[in-house]
Amino acid sequence: MDKGNQATAQETARTRWLTQAPLPRSYSDYVGRKIFRFLMTVHGLGAFALITFGVIFTKLRTARSVTTPLIFHELARSGLRLLPMFLFMSAALGLVVIGQTVSWLTRVGAANSFLGPIMVLVVVRELGPLFTALLVLSRSGTGNVIELGTARALGEVEALESMSIDPVHYLVMPRVIGMALGVFSLTVFFIIGAILSGYLWAFLQNVPLRPGDYFEQLARALSGLDFAILAVKSFLFGTVIAIITCYHGLSQPLQLSEVPAATIRAVAQSIIACVLVDAIFIFTYLLV
Protein backbone atom coordinates (compact mmCIF):
# COMPACT_ATOMS: atom_id res chain seq x y z
CA MET A 1 0.00 0.00 0.00
CA ASP A 2 1.44 3.40 -0.90
CA LYS A 3 1.65 6.24 1.61
CA GLY A 4 -1.38 8.04 0.17
CA ASN A 5 -3.65 5.02 0.55
CA GLN A 6 -2.33 4.34 4.07
CA ALA A 7 -3.18 7.90 5.13
CA THR A 8 -6.67 7.57 3.64
CA ALA A 9 -7.23 4.28 5.47
CA GLN A 10 -6.15 5.82 8.78
CA GLU A 11 -8.38 8.80 8.19
CA THR A 12 -11.31 6.47 7.45
CA ALA A 13 -10.66 4.52 10.65
CA ARG A 14 -10.58 7.76 12.66
CA THR A 15 -13.89 8.99 11.28
CA ARG A 16 -15.65 5.63 11.17
CA TRP A 17 -17.53 6.27 14.41
CA LEU A 18 -19.24 9.15 12.68
CA THR A 19 -20.74 6.81 10.11
CA GLN A 20 -22.13 4.56 12.83
CA ALA A 21 -25.00 6.95 13.36
CA PRO A 22 -27.44 7.01 14.93
CA LEU A 23 -25.51 7.13 18.17
CA PRO A 24 -27.05 5.34 21.14
CA ARG A 25 -30.26 7.06 22.20
CA SER A 26 -28.86 7.88 25.67
CA TYR A 27 -26.15 10.12 24.07
CA SER A 28 -28.63 12.26 22.15
CA ASP A 29 -30.95 12.38 25.17
CA TYR A 30 -28.08 13.58 27.33
CA VAL A 31 -27.07 16.32 24.87
CA GLY A 32 -30.70 17.29 24.37
CA ARG A 33 -31.26 17.57 28.10
CA LYS A 34 -28.17 19.75 28.48
CA ILE A 35 -29.22 22.06 25.63
CA PHE A 36 -32.79 22.27 26.91
CA ARG A 37 -31.59 23.03 30.44
CA PHE A 38 -29.21 25.69 29.12
CA LEU A 39 -32.01 27.39 27.18
CA MET A 40 -34.31 27.24 30.21
CA THR A 41 -31.62 28.85 32.36
CA VAL A 42 -31.02 31.62 29.81
CA HIS A 43 -34.79 32.19 29.59
CA GLY A 44 -35.18 32.24 33.38
CA LEU A 45 -32.22 34.54 33.92
CA GLY A 46 -33.39 36.91 31.20
CA ALA A 47 -36.88 37.10 32.68
CA PHE A 48 -35.52 37.58 36.20
CA ALA A 49 -33.17 40.35 35.02
CA LEU A 50 -36.04 42.17 33.26
CA ILE A 51 -38.24 41.91 36.35
CA THR A 52 -35.39 43.23 38.51
CA PHE A 53 -34.69 46.20 36.23
CA GLY A 54 -38.42 46.91 36.08
CA VAL A 55 -38.62 46.98 39.88
CA ILE A 56 -35.48 49.17 40.13
CA PHE A 57 -36.90 51.72 37.73
CA THR A 58 -40.44 51.77 39.09
CA LYS A 59 -39.87 51.32 42.83
CA LEU A 60 -36.51 52.93 43.49
CA ARG A 61 -38.18 55.59 45.64
CA THR A 62 -40.73 53.29 47.28
CA ALA A 63 -40.19 52.58 51.00
CA ARG A 64 -36.75 54.20 50.95
CA SER A 65 -36.51 54.08 54.73
CA VAL A 66 -36.44 50.28 54.39
CA THR A 67 -34.42 49.79 51.20
CA THR A 68 -31.71 52.45 51.64
CA PRO A 69 -30.17 50.77 54.73
CA LEU A 70 -30.27 47.47 52.83
CA ILE A 71 -28.38 49.04 49.92
CA PHE A 72 -25.73 50.42 52.30
CA HIS A 73 -25.52 47.04 54.01
CA GLU A 74 -24.87 45.35 50.66
CA LEU A 75 -22.39 48.06 49.68
CA ALA A 76 -20.49 47.43 52.90
CA ARG A 77 -20.58 43.68 52.39
CA SER A 78 -19.56 43.75 48.72
CA GLY A 79 -17.24 46.73 49.05
CA LEU A 80 -15.91 48.20 52.25
CA ARG A 81 -15.42 44.96 54.19
CA LEU A 82 -13.51 43.40 51.29
CA LEU A 83 -11.07 46.31 51.04
CA PRO A 84 -8.23 44.81 53.16
CA MET A 85 -8.26 41.61 51.08
CA PHE A 86 -8.35 43.65 47.89
CA LEU A 87 -5.39 45.82 48.90
CA PHE A 88 -3.38 42.68 49.59
CA MET A 89 -4.43 41.11 46.26
CA SER A 90 -3.69 44.32 44.36
CA ALA A 91 -0.19 44.42 45.85
CA ALA A 92 0.26 40.79 44.79
CA LEU A 93 -1.00 41.49 41.25
CA GLY A 94 1.33 44.49 40.93
CA LEU A 95 4.22 42.24 41.93
CA VAL A 96 3.25 39.51 39.45
CA VAL A 97 2.77 41.86 36.50
CA ILE A 98 5.79 44.09 37.14
CA GLY A 99 8.02 41.22 38.25
CA GLN A 100 7.41 39.26 35.05
CA THR A 101 7.51 42.35 32.83
CA VAL A 102 10.78 43.61 34.26
CA SER A 103 12.44 40.20 34.00
CA TRP A 104 11.58 40.01 30.28
CA LEU A 105 12.00 43.65 29.27
CA THR A 106 15.39 43.91 30.99
CA ARG A 107 16.74 41.43 28.42
CA VAL A 108 15.91 43.89 25.62
CA GLY A 109 16.81 46.95 27.66
CA ALA A 110 13.32 48.41 27.58
CA ALA A 111 12.17 47.90 31.17
CA ASN A 112 11.89 51.60 31.96
CA SER A 113 9.90 52.45 28.82
CA PHE A 114 6.98 50.05 28.87
CA LEU A 115 5.99 49.51 32.49
CA GLY A 116 3.22 52.14 32.35
CA PRO A 117 1.61 50.93 29.10
CA ILE A 118 1.77 47.31 30.25
CA MET A 119 0.10 48.18 33.56
CA VAL A 120 -2.69 49.91 31.65
CA LEU A 121 -3.10 47.00 29.24
CA VAL A 122 -3.02 44.25 31.80
CA VAL A 123 -4.38 45.76 35.03
CA VAL A 124 -6.64 48.66 34.03
CA ARG A 125 -8.23 47.12 30.95
CA GLU A 126 -8.38 43.44 31.80
CA LEU A 127 -7.28 41.90 35.05
CA GLY A 128 -8.40 44.66 37.43
CA PRO A 129 -12.13 44.53 36.71
CA LEU A 130 -12.26 40.78 36.07
CA PHE A 131 -10.22 39.89 39.14
CA THR A 132 -12.37 42.17 41.29
CA ALA A 133 -15.57 40.62 39.95
CA LEU A 134 -14.38 37.09 40.64
CA LEU A 135 -13.24 37.95 44.17
CA VAL A 136 -16.55 39.66 44.96
CA LEU A 137 -18.36 36.63 43.53
CA SER A 138 -16.40 34.31 45.80
CA ARG A 139 -16.97 36.40 48.92
CA SER A 140 -20.40 38.05 48.54
CA GLY A 141 -22.03 36.32 45.57
CA THR A 142 -21.93 32.93 47.23
CA GLY A 143 -23.31 34.54 50.39
CA ASN A 144 -26.24 35.86 48.34
CA VAL A 145 -27.25 32.42 47.10
CA ILE A 146 -26.94 30.84 50.53
CA GLU A 147 -28.87 33.64 52.28
CA LEU A 148 -31.65 33.82 49.72
CA GLY A 149 -31.84 30.05 49.21
CA THR A 150 -32.18 29.57 52.96
CA ALA A 151 -34.76 32.37 53.17
CA ARG A 152 -36.71 30.72 50.38
CA ALA A 153 -36.51 27.29 52.00
CA LEU A 154 -37.69 28.70 55.35
CA GLY A 155 -40.70 30.45 53.81
CA GLU A 156 -39.44 34.01 54.32
CA VAL A 157 -40.33 34.95 50.75
CA GLU A 158 -43.97 33.96 51.37
CA ALA A 159 -43.82 35.97 54.61
CA LEU A 160 -42.78 39.08 52.64
CA GLU A 161 -45.55 38.49 50.12
CA SER A 162 -48.07 38.14 52.94
CA MET A 163 -47.04 41.64 54.07
CA SER A 164 -47.50 42.91 50.49
CA ILE A 165 -43.76 43.49 50.24
CA ASP A 166 -42.37 42.66 46.81
CA PRO A 167 -39.52 40.16 47.44
CA VAL A 168 -37.63 41.47 44.40
CA HIS A 169 -37.85 45.00 45.79
CA TYR A 170 -36.81 44.00 49.31
CA LEU A 171 -34.30 41.22 48.64
CA VAL A 172 -32.94 41.68 45.11
CA MET A 173 -32.90 45.40 44.32
CA PRO A 174 -30.63 46.38 47.25
CA ARG A 175 -28.25 43.55 46.39
CA VAL A 176 -28.03 44.53 42.71
CA ILE A 177 -27.44 48.23 43.42
CA GLY A 178 -25.08 47.57 46.34
CA MET A 179 -23.04 44.99 44.48
CA ALA A 180 -22.77 47.08 41.29
CA LEU A 181 -21.50 50.04 43.33
CA GLY A 182 -19.28 47.75 45.41
CA VAL A 183 -17.60 46.11 42.41
CA PHE A 184 -17.04 49.51 40.79
CA SER A 185 -15.48 51.00 43.93
CA LEU A 186 -13.33 47.97 44.62
CA THR A 187 -12.12 47.93 41.00
CA VAL A 188 -10.93 51.52 41.36
CA PHE A 189 -9.09 50.75 44.63
CA PHE A 190 -7.73 47.52 43.20
CA ILE A 191 -6.27 49.26 40.16
CA ILE A 192 -4.78 52.09 42.23
CA GLY A 193 -3.25 49.53 44.60
CA ALA A 194 -1.80 47.45 41.75
CA ILE A 195 -0.32 50.55 40.03
CA LEU A 196 1.33 51.75 43.24
CA SER A 197 2.62 48.32 44.21
CA GLY A 198 3.83 47.87 40.62
CA TYR A 199 6.07 50.90 40.97
CA LEU A 200 7.28 49.66 44.37
CA TRP A 201 8.35 46.32 42.89
CA ALA A 202 9.99 48.03 39.92
CA PHE A 203 11.91 50.24 42.37
CA LEU A 204 12.99 47.18 44.38
CA GLN A 205 14.20 45.54 41.16
CA ASN A 206 16.41 48.58 40.45
CA VAL A 207 14.55 49.68 37.31
CA PRO A 208 15.85 53.20 36.49
CA LEU A 209 12.41 54.83 36.43
CA ARG A 210 11.40 57.91 38.43
CA PRO A 211 7.84 58.05 39.86
CA GLY A 212 7.01 61.04 37.64
CA ASP A 213 8.04 59.17 34.50
CA TYR A 214 6.06 56.11 35.54
CA PHE A 215 2.89 58.11 36.06
CA GLU A 216 3.48 60.01 32.83
CA GLN A 217 3.67 56.69 30.98
CA LEU A 218 0.41 55.64 32.64
CA ALA A 219 -1.30 58.92 31.72
CA ARG A 220 -0.13 58.67 28.10
CA ALA A 221 -1.33 55.07 27.81
CA LEU A 222 -4.77 55.84 29.26
CA SER A 223 -7.56 57.30 27.16
CA GLY A 224 -11.03 58.58 27.97
CA LEU A 225 -12.44 55.35 26.57
CA ASP A 226 -10.51 53.38 29.21
CA PHE A 227 -12.26 55.26 32.01
CA ALA A 228 -15.67 54.91 30.39
CA ILE A 229 -15.27 51.20 29.70
CA LEU A 230 -13.83 50.58 33.15
CA ALA A 231 -16.88 52.17 34.77
CA VAL A 232 -19.43 50.42 32.56
CA LYS A 233 -17.66 47.06 32.77
CA SER A 234 -17.31 47.03 36.54
CA PHE A 235 -20.93 48.12 37.06
CA LEU A 236 -22.01 45.39 34.66
CA PHE A 237 -19.94 42.74 36.42
CA GLY A 238 -21.54 43.65 39.75
CA THR A 239 -25.02 43.67 38.24
CA VAL A 240 -24.54 40.35 36.45
CA ILE A 241 -23.17 38.60 39.55
CA ALA A 242 -25.95 39.97 41.76
CA ILE A 243 -28.70 38.96 39.33
CA ILE A 244 -27.37 35.45 38.73
CA THR A 245 -26.77 34.74 42.41
CA CYS A 246 -30.15 36.17 43.44
CA TYR A 247 -31.85 34.20 40.66
CA HIS A 248 -30.42 30.92 41.88
CA GLY A 249 -31.31 31.74 45.47
CA LEU A 250 -34.87 32.85 44.81
CA SER A 251 -36.17 31.65 41.48
CA GLN A 252 -37.53 28.28 42.56
CA PRO A 253 -38.66 26.69 45.78
CA LEU A 254 -35.61 25.13 47.40
CA GLN A 255 -35.14 22.59 50.12
CA LEU A 256 -32.27 23.42 52.49
CA SER A 257 -30.33 20.47 51.07
CA GLU A 258 -30.51 22.01 47.57
CA VAL A 259 -28.83 25.28 48.57
CA PRO A 260 -25.21 24.05 48.06
CA ALA A 261 -26.00 22.80 44.54
CA ALA A 262 -27.70 26.12 43.71
CA THR A 263 -24.59 27.96 44.96
CA ILE A 264 -22.31 25.90 42.73
CA ARG A 265 -24.53 26.54 39.69
CA ALA A 266 -24.63 30.28 40.45
CA VAL A 267 -20.85 30.54 40.77
CA ALA A 268 -20.22 28.64 37.52
CA GLN A 269 -22.76 30.70 35.58
CA SER A 270 -21.51 33.99 37.05
CA ILE A 271 -17.94 33.21 35.96
CA ILE A 272 -19.10 32.35 32.44
CA ALA A 273 -21.27 35.49 32.27
CA CYS A 274 -18.41 37.74 33.47
CA VAL A 275 -16.02 36.26 30.90
CA LEU A 276 -18.63 36.78 28.16
CA VAL A 277 -19.15 40.41 29.23
CA ASP A 278 -15.38 40.88 29.23
CA ALA A 279 -15.16 39.39 25.73
CA ILE A 280 -17.70 41.95 24.48
CA PHE A 281 -15.50 44.76 25.77
CA ILE A 282 -12.39 43.25 24.16
CA PHE A 283 -14.25 43.45 20.84
CA THR A 284 -15.07 47.07 21.63
CA TYR A 285 -11.36 47.80 21.99
CA LEU A 286 -10.63 45.98 18.74
CA LEU A 287 -13.27 47.93 16.86
CA VAL A 288 -12.40 51.40 18.21
Binding site: E147, T150, A151, L154, G155, E156, E158, A159, L160, S162, S164
Partner: peptide
Protein backbone atom coordinates in the same frame (compact mmCIF):
# COMPACT_ATOMS: atom_id res chain seq x y z
CA UNK B 1 -54.31 43.35 50.07
CA UNK B 2 -53.35 44.99 53.35
CA UNK B 3 -56.92 44.49 54.59
CA UNK B 4 -55.82 40.88 55.16
CA UNK B 5 -53.28 39.61 57.66
CA UNK B 6 -51.76 36.12 57.65
CA UNK B 7 -50.14 34.34 60.58
CA UNK B 8 -48.06 31.38 59.44
CA UNK B 9 -47.94 28.16 61.42
CA UNK B 10 -44.25 28.63 62.23
CA UNK B 11 -44.31 32.43 62.36
CA UNK B 12 -42.04 32.62 59.29
CA UNK B 13 -39.93 35.41 60.72
CA UNK B 14 -37.05 36.91 58.79
CA UNK B 15 -34.08 35.32 60.49
CA UNK B 16 -31.68 38.24 60.04
Amino acid sequence: RLRLGLVFEGGQLLQN
